[in-house]
């Protein structure tokens, strides 16, 4: 890969996390547990889709306009998506929605906080824009984790179950591969290895306040960044891509 292709792929990775989680959260539209939460989840979804749009527009520019942001979002087959496995996991119950958000937002606060210093001015400006939104997402997810964790026996059980179930998808967030390494060397990408300790501390603090326990060490799943997804991804894409597949080039 040349340096342009590397940067293009990096934008896709970041954009795909935002797009796929945005799609997952959109599923809660009109199905939130209460009206206020319905609004909150869809607001977070909107933030995610806005971020994906900014990153895909930039990717399209890097690619010389060969494919548009919409092509990137809607026309790729499953194995070309580069998102982490965590964000494609199904909503299951509200506790899973919150646990997933807690894990990813705690990571994103650190990641985008570091990306703000990128030598790539566009990535840096997207980072400094999006991090303000991420801080709200993290606060929201932390509040709910505490409220449910330190709630009734049933809510405590469900919150702990979700925290445990999704734990095996968190290791992948901190993996570095050749794309990460090369962009780190050129001052564009983020060094994720030192983030893991800070992330664990943050999660530990929230779980303690929620009277929940940190999951035990276990085998960590990975593969999303290489395009190897869980069985849930195809179902998500079939819904998300339906319109563009059925009516290619459809315009509003």
């Amino acid at each position: 890969m040349n340096s342009k292709e590397i940067l293009y792929n990096y934008c896709l990775r970041l954009g795909d996390d935002a797009l796929i989680l945005g799609q997952r959260l959109s599923e809660l539209c009109s199905k939130g547990p209460i009206l206020e939460e319905d609004l909150a989840q869809t607001n977070i979804a909107l933030d995610m889709i806005g971020r994906a749009q900014a990153l895909f527009n930039y990717a399209s520019e890097i690619n010389g306009g060969k494919n548009t942001a919409d092509d990137i979002a809607y026309r790729r087959p499953e194995f070309q998506y580069r998102n982490h496995l965590l964000v494609e996991q199904p909503n299951e119950d509200f506790a899973h929605v919150i646990a997933r958000q807690l894990y990813i937002s705690a990571f994103e606060v650190l990641f985008y906080g570091s990306l703000e210093n990128s030598k790539d001015s566009i990535l840096a400006s997207i980072a400094s824009k999006t991090i303000k939104e991420i801080k709200y997402h993290l606060q929201h997810a932390s509040d709910w984790t505490v409220r449910l964790g330190d709630g009734t026996p049933e809510s405590t059980f469900k919150m702990q179950r979700a925290i445990n179930n999704l734990w095996m998808y968190t290791g992948e967030l901190f993996e570095m591969d050749s794309i990460d390494d090369q962009l780190l060397k050129s001052g564009i990408g983020v060094d994720k290895s030192p983030l893991i300790e800070k992330w664990r501390k943050q999660i530990q603090a929230t779980l303690s306040e929620a009277t929940l326990t940190m999951p035990e060490e276990m085998f960590m799943q990975s593969g999303g960044k290489q395009g190897v997804h869980t069985e849930h991804m195809g179902h998500l894409l079939s819904e998300m891509q339906y319109l563009q597949r059925a009516y290619p080039d459809a315009k509003w």
Binding site: E36, L39, A40, N43, L46, D47, E133, Y136, H140
Partner: peptide, 13 residues
Amino acid sequence: LISRFGSTACKAL
């Protein structure tokens, strides 16, 4: 505070 996210992303309820 009822909700951190109101009718639009920039407002709380």
